[in-house]
Simulated assay, not measured.
Amino acid sequence: MSFSPNGKYLASCSMDRSVLLWQTRHFSEREHKSTRVNVEFDHATGVSWSPDNHALLCAKHNENRLQVYKLSKKSDGTLGNPQVAVTFDKLDDDPLVGSGISSNGGSAEQRHSAGHYVMCCSERGRLTVFDLRGGVLASTDTRQAPVHAARISPCGRFIMSAGFTPDVKVWEVAFTRSGDFDKLSRAFELKGHTSGVLDLSATPDSFRMVTVSRDGTWKLFNTNVEYRIGQDPQLIQSAPCGGGESGSASRVALSPDGCTVAVGARSDVQLFSAETGDMMATLAALHSSPITCMLFDPTSRYLLTTGDKHIRILHNVPGCRVNIQVMKDKLAKTTNHTLKERLTAQVKELQAFLSTLGE
């Protein structure tokens, strides 16, 4: 699954050879209409939105290559009429375990230093960076085979890879001030697990990153560090997960507000407070098969999960409560009038949201 940068659409891909486009404003309604994009003679294992919200990058399973579909707006305002715009060259026969397009989001400084590019990573650890037309900009071996997950950070500045080794490697994709690609280089590592890392996630500014490992724990790191002068990320929280069974937790998601860590273990989801590390809720048997993907919406109010033929949309009530308390703590400490007004408005908005759920 992937949310569009403007937050208006969700794209999901399936083994039924389709990519479905959903409007997020319909999440609270009973009926959920979608627009279908057919992946001919193949199916997508990953999907990502372009920065302009008008194209989709799909990782094709059988061909082991990337393909871009251009979308146009219909008369009713929905997206549709998909057309294949770019087909990337096939690099090797290894399955692709990660792909994406840089969103160029994050802070103003990050937007200035990041550029638009496409990434894919194979199971054997070949990490490749392309330009938007499919030309290869850089390639490297992650030395983590088999690789379990590879992601572009939401800010577009980093690529994160996790695999057989207990450390997550984070790469910086650097661009010049004129917007030309400069280099792909190692930025830092996330260390502390005792077994292979299965999944990872980051906040929109990439200042927080979370990992889940075969060792039965998740770890949250402060990655807002001066890595260019050798400063390492700092461990903020760590907690056991997956019901105490080592290796049963295989998916992790960090809410955009940085308050909630969701861990998928088999068909169950556990919600943790990123502030204290405490488990706040367990949602059992959400799917008829193991969870394959978890994703928070841009507001952090919803958690989406996949694992069978359905997408489950869950209200993130525990995370909203944590966020309210975090903002109240900030209110008690700040003397800035403008910040107080903004925090007060945000608290009231979240409280109103919870009240609509009977909380």
Rank of each mutant, 00 (worst) to 15 (best):
L10Y: 01
V212R: 00
N6G: 05
D52Q: 04
M119D: 05
W218N: 02
S4R: 12
A114H: 06
Q237L: 11
A274R: 07
A239T: 01
D257P: 05
V168P: 03
D16N: 13
P298Q: 10
P154F: 13
K191F: 00
L71P: 15
N62V: 03
G192S: 02
V47C: 07
R342S: 14
H54V: 06
T35A: 15
T165R: 00
V261C: 12
S139R: 14
C120F: 10
L303P: 07
Y227M: 04
M327F: 02
V326P: 00
T140K: 10
A332E: 15
S48W: 15
M1H: 07
D308R: 00
G264R: 08
C155T: 08
M160W: 03
A174C: 06
L343I: 10
L343R: 11
K328I: 05
E275M: 07
L339D: 07
T211G: 07
N38C: 01
E123L: 12
V269T: 09
T45I: 01
P95E: 11
S75L: 06
E40L: 03
L132P: 00
H315V: 12
V47M: 10
K309T: 09
V225Y: 01
R177F: 12
V168N: 04
K8T: 05
R157E: 12
S4T: 10
S250V: 13
E245P: 02
Q23F: 05
H116F: 15
L354K: 00
E63Q: 13
D180T: 04
S2G: 08
A162C: 08
H26I: 02
I152F: 13
P166T: 02
G358M: 03
E109G: 02
D297T: 08
G192W: 05
N323I: 01
R157A: 10
S34H: 15
C241R: 05
L200V: 12
S289N: 01
F188W: 05
P154V: 09
C241S: 07
A59F: 02
G244N: 06
S201Y: 13
M327R: 08
R312G: 03
V147K: 02
T299C: 11
Y302I: 08
D16C: 02
